[in-house]
């Protein structure tokens, strides 16, 4: 009996390991397919572009993953990115710290943390559903992004801040990608080796049970939304310093792409499950899908269809895995 249970347990583990490797298989399949269909794909410039493009989406995705693991969601990352970019750039070109690069970088982190603090307060202290709270905040930050500088774009052409977004180590590795890697490593260490990481998974697994053990769940929830806000702030820094401007319209598809990346990477929308590595792979897949259609010169409408199929596939895999695991 005991050995049967052990065999079943190890079979479950093997199955789960296999399922968690699916995003990696998807990525490999996508790369092989693109290499076969476009002779221009397997070039160094493609890799450099990919590293640069994945950084902001990937960093926002790490923040989104943390929120989803605790059973929440953060809808402010898209317009929040634009608002933080506008506010920080405004203080860079006017105000007491004009032209100060350290203050410029710091302001992104501070504004991001403040945004996350407000989100966390609404969700943890006032007990508002994350979906509702961050949806309302999304509207609020969109309005703020239009309010700052009258909604007029702030140009940073020729500014030294471009070194953050456009700089390349050895002419090859984008600085922005190294920042993304650093965020991933820190998030990974935090999730695996700190008390906060343990509580993040525990909140997503069974928040009530954790609360009964005396853990300050609200406190940790606020911390998670602050971390997500900081991720949005760093992504805003990379975006602004790459495109050499801040504009209220720069939110693009960041929100959807980041949540999709976390989802494709195996983060369970039910909470309690998700890895930095999976999210890293998911972000690369999302950027590669966008890239693929340009390399293959396929009309954009199909891009959304394909992206939708990949997300559905990832969600289905998660659902099937959960069904088998619960049997």
């Amino acid at each position: 009996m005991g050995s049967d249970a052990g065999l079943l347990g190890s079979a479950n583990l093997r199955r789960r390991s296999l399922l968690s490797a699916i995003p990696l298989f998807m990525l490999i399949a996508l790369v092989i397919m693109l290499s076969l269909l476009s002779r221009e794909f397997l070039r160094l410039v493609t890799l450099i572009n990919l590293m640069q493009q994945v950084a902001p989406i990937g960093i926002v995705a790490v923040g989104a993953m943390l929120c989803i693991i605790i059973g929440g969601i953060d809808f402010t990352s898209g317009h929040g990115l634009a608002m933080i970019g506008m506010a920080a750039s405004f203080f860079y070109v006017s105000g007491p710290f004009v032209g100060s690069l350290p203050m410029f970088i710091l302001s992104f982190v501070v504004f991001g943390a403040l945004l996350g603090l407000v989100n966390g307060f609404l969700i943890a202290k006032l007990n508002i559903l994350p979906f509702i709270a961050t949806l309302a905040m999304m509207s609020l930050v969109q309005g703020l992004s239009l309010y700052i500088n009258g909604g007029t774009m702030i140009l940073l052409v020729g500014s030294p801040v471009l070194g953050v977004g456009q700089g390349r180590i050895g002419g090859v590795v984008p600085v922005s990608f190294l920042i993304f890697l650093a965020v991933c490593v820190l998030a990974g260490i935090m999730l695996r080796h700190t008390k906060l990481g343990v509580y993040i998974y525990a909140i997503g697994g069974n928040e009530t049970a954790l609360w009964y053990t005396g853990v300050k769940v609200q406190h940790y929830k606020i911390m998670v939304y602050m971390l997500a806000g900081i991720c949005t702030g760093i992504a805003a820094l990379l975006t602004v310093s790459t495109i050499a401007m801040a504009t209220p319209s720069m939110f693009g598809t960041t929100l959807i792409d980041a949540i999709a990346a976390a989802c494709i990477g195996g983060t369970s929308m039910r909470g309690g499950k998700g890895t930095v590595f999976g999210t890293f792979i998911g972000a690369i897949i999302i950027v590669l899908i966008n890239t693929a259609f340009i390399y293959l010169n396929i009309q954009s409408a199909m891009q959304d269809v394909f992206k939708g199929i990949v997300i559905l596939f990832a969600v289905t895999v998660d659902a099937v895995a959960n069904m088998k695991y619960n049997k």
């Binding site: 221009e40 794909f41 493009q53 495109i243 693009g252 340009i294 390399y295």
Partner: peptide
């Protein structure tokens, strides 16, 4: 999509895919 980051990304990929 009237969006500068998207425009930049698309241009980067177009330049890479079409030397």
């Amino acid at each position: 999509n009237w969006d500068p980051p998207t425009g930049m990304q698309v241009a980067q990929d177009m330049l890479a895919a079409n030397p």
